[in-house]
Design a protein around this nucleic acid. Structure first.
Lengths: 349, 349
DNA sequence: ATGAAAGCGCTAACAG
DNA sequence: CTGTTAGCGCTTTCAT
């Protein structure tokens, strides 16, 4: 069933059918109804490819989840408590806005060609990327295509510095620095002076912000900076677990550990537990992200809540705005986080 | 940049460019290289809409997640431990097979028109649906379109009974009946005779299978069938929590509870804990799905593991097979489950 | 207010 | 082996 068939059945021309479909104003109600009736009756739906080829948008956005470090992990992002909510929230919001969503995962540099192709082949009107590495090439590559792009968790400084075209680019972040600072102030307020840190991927903006907040807090309060207490977790459970074991074996433990995300905090807690170190009695632990499990484990994990739903909605709104109105809404939206106090931290006072 | 531009630059015709792109055999290496070089050089990518319009496939599959009961829950599927892994596994597998994935959520009957449109508008070559209700209309509607369709968790009996065209339809299930039976046998083997059940949505195939296995097990062992021990959870945490409270207040508890999924089992455990009922000391609990959290809570939850990754891969393989070769691979693939014993069940002997 | 016709970028007979 | 040509189904000037 093509528009021409509808046209014949309704006794009009294809142009008229097209006008009805696209809600052109100068068309009498009578004609409109006549055409609409046939369309209904035959369950006609215009062919998307033809419409796109004739100049319409695809009404589809791409959502790209970048997780380069997890390349060799079979249970990949769905074991990752950070990305899953973004995927769902973006889909929900975009669907509600009448957009289809093409979701693609990026585990390797090569996967990026698929992302680029999605744009270049005109499969999507615009795209959202989450988890981008501090890799200006990639951003320039994709951003240079001149198509609407929203980056979730990216340093606006990078963009400015490299003079990227900002007309179809937007950034959505969370206030990670503030959130991490809140976590540190909380621990310090509880009387902790020896505080360890499990770092995330420093190639991500949030990873760097959280690390910097840790360092700044120590310095601000004149607390000791122990290299041995600084673990490299890369946002991954396994790494955090291994590093925690190493720390335990070293014989010297801090009184508190701030982890750059909950997944790693939980992994570290497992390691501690297995070695007879009690949380929070011996060591306090606080995470980041406030993933659903955080409240379900024992002891429940204190954390910093990330407004993932708000961030996702903002990202979708921005991309839709750019796709439809050609709105060049450059700028960073930064969403506040919230300290969630639970049972994994104890006061030393 | 269009194929014509490439043609000019390479000194050939558009057809030749097309032949190179589509890997036609009868084209000399020299010509091929010449064209390929220009394509590389200009980062040319053929316009998907044009290719599709000219008869090619979209190389895109749709993945539709149906969760009708959660319509009014803001934190929807990403709070759902059952769907999230499917989403990710399908995307991963399809991406690896060179396919793009259009993901859409269905929370209401109206959302189904979006699903139908995705097919009718030729946005996808085929689709996978998970969570379909026992609603043959929907299946007939979508299946009647004549496009490749794979249903995850659906009763093949429904298909047969209604004489649906089976040439482009396949079903992928897990052995829920066997899995639920294993869970029941496990509890019974531990000496439990009063066993409660938290039912899932009986409109889903797995929901019905799990319920039937419960009933059959009781009957087979001549155990009492207490209506009061049969809770209606609809696969939702909140319902399970509320029902558990009701059961506790009734004053009579079974010695064990089999929950049709882990989310509900965990919710029930919370309710029990809040009312001073100890698990597994007072009541043993076993769930289904073996979601990641199951092993992380205290006590760790015994469960039945679902081979989500295998099911997803099979679904993708089937859909890809049907899309590419026009393979009419009708039939049901049914994947075995695995009983996972943890700390939430105790022996009464 | 509506129809005719050109064209979007590509593929696939058909010729040669 | 390669070029010419006719669509694929729709939108959109341009006429009328």
């Amino acid at each position: 069933m093509r528009s021409e068939d509808i046209a014949k059945l309704a006794g009009v021309s294809r142009s008229t059918v097209s006008r009805v479909i696209n809600n052109y104003p100068d068309i009498p109600q009578k004609t409109r109804d006549k055409v609409l009736k046939i369309i209904e009756q035959y369950h006609y739906e215009p062919n998307t490819s033809a419409r796109v080829l004739a100049g319409k948008g695809t009404n589809t956005i791409g959502f790209f989840v970048v997780s380069l470090a997890e390349q060799h992990n079979v249970n990949r992002i769905y074991q990752n408590n950070y990305f899953a909510p973004f995927v769902d929230a973006v889909i929900d919001t975009a669907n509600a806005a009448g957009y289809y969503v093409l979701v693609h995962t990026v585990y390797s540099k090569e996967d990026f060609v698929k992302v680029k192709q999605a744009f270049l082949q005109k499969r999507i009107d615009g795209g959202i990327i989450v988890g981008t590495q501090k890799d200006i090439d990639t951003v320039r590559d994709i951003g240079g295509l001149g198509m609407p792009l929203v980056l979730i968790d990216y340093d606006i400084g990078e963009i400015m510095e490299h003079h990227l075209d900002q007309n179809h680019l937007a950034i959505v972040n969370s206030k990670d620095y503030e959130g991490a600072t809140a976590a540190m102030e909380y621990l310090i307020g509880l009387g902790h002076r020896e505080i360890g840190f499990i770092a995330g991927r420093l190639t991500t903006f949030s990873g760097r912000q959280r690390a910097k907040a840790y360092e700044d807090a120590l310095q601000r309060h004149g607390l000791p900076v122990e290299e041995a207490f600084r673990l490299k977790g890369e946002f991954l459970k396994q790494n955090a677990y291994d590093e925690a074991i190493r720390l335990i074996r070293s014989g010297r433990l801090p009184t508190a550990i701030f982890s750059a995300n909950d997944d790693m905090a939980i992994a570290a807690m497992e390691a501690l537990k297995e070695h007879g170190v009690r949380v929070p009695d011996d060591v306090s632990v606080i995470g980041f992200d406030d993933v659903p499990v955080a409240s379900q484990i024992v002891p429940s994990l204190s954390s910093v809540r990330l407004p993932i739903y708000d961030m996702s909605r903002e990202a979708v709104n921005k991309i839709v705005g750019m796709c439809e109105a050609g709105l060049s809404s450059f700028g960073t939206s930064s969403f506040p986080t919230q300290l969630i106090q639970r049972d994994s931290c104890r006061s030393l006072r």
